[in-house]
Design a protein around this nucleic acid. Structure first.
Lengths: 127, 127
DNA sequence: AAAAGTGTATTAGTCAAATAATACGGTTCC
DNA sequence: GGAACCGTATTATTTGACTAATACACTTTT
């Protein structure tokens, strides 16, 4: 069963997108693997304190991407066969890499200052 | 007159927030300085292809933060006195630093892999 | 078999973001 | 002084995110 203990609800970003991002980053990190069971819509919505429909929207989008398999009545589970896992990781690294580098550059940081900033907050992110 | 040539409209983020971020990053970078004139609401909305009310919302929020001064009839301009510029840069670095480090860590990257990723897309961000 | 849990679907409502169309008074510039 | 531009304000509408309350059929568990 996939754990949502590390999930923290942020503001200003659609909740269903945060769920997508959380799961995809877990897939990229390898902490979420092929065949892993997802919490049911009802359980996760109660856990996060959001509406079941919001979780359903996230799960539906994941299924449309082929990353989840759902059968009426049974729990949904992760599908990473056919290079899906590698694809997710590659896409995530490229999108985040571009976005992050652009942000740091727009703030006028040099390459060294940017690397130093990541270094500075790296320890905090490990908690 | 502050240039919005480098501004590119993204999806999934409120437009008024994108305008705020663009200006704050310019302030942090030093490319936007004290007393600089902003494009009028009408001109900028036409330039970005968005509604004047959306630009007005961004400008109003900036004024509430004390980063803009507006007088009815005249153009608005940037106010960075009293350490406002430094404050903006410090806040931006902390927020982005934390968010970026957390994202990289959640993807399971080591510190070295994270720094390599930034390095990889650094050149692209320069354009 | 019965109960509990699950995926799925529907309808209704609230709220924020964004658009659209004006309107008014003040400033700038020729 | 007048035209052009500017900040500001108002009202209405559309769209998407989210909540709320159900309902139904299927699976799992006991």
């Amino acid at each position: 069963m996939i754990s949502f203990d590390a999930f923290v609800l942020a503001e200003g970003v659609p909740i269903y997108q945060q769920i997508l991002t959380f799961l995809k980053r877990g897939i990229a990190a390898g902490t979420i693997g092929d065949g892993d069971e997802l919490p049911s819509r009802r359980v996760l919505s109660a856990l996060l304190g959001v509406n079941p429909n919001t979780v359903q929207k996230a799960y539906r989008l994941l299924e449309e991407e082929g990353l989840i398999q759902s059968h009426t009545g049974a729990k949904s589970c992760i599908v990473l066969s056919g290079g899906r896992g590698e694809r997710v990781k590659r896409q995530l690294l490229e999108e985040d890499g571009r976005r992050i580098a652009a942000a740091l550059h727009q703030m006028g940081l040099t390459r060294e200052e940017a690397l130093a900033l990541i270094d500075r907050y790296w320890e905090e992110g490990t908690q």
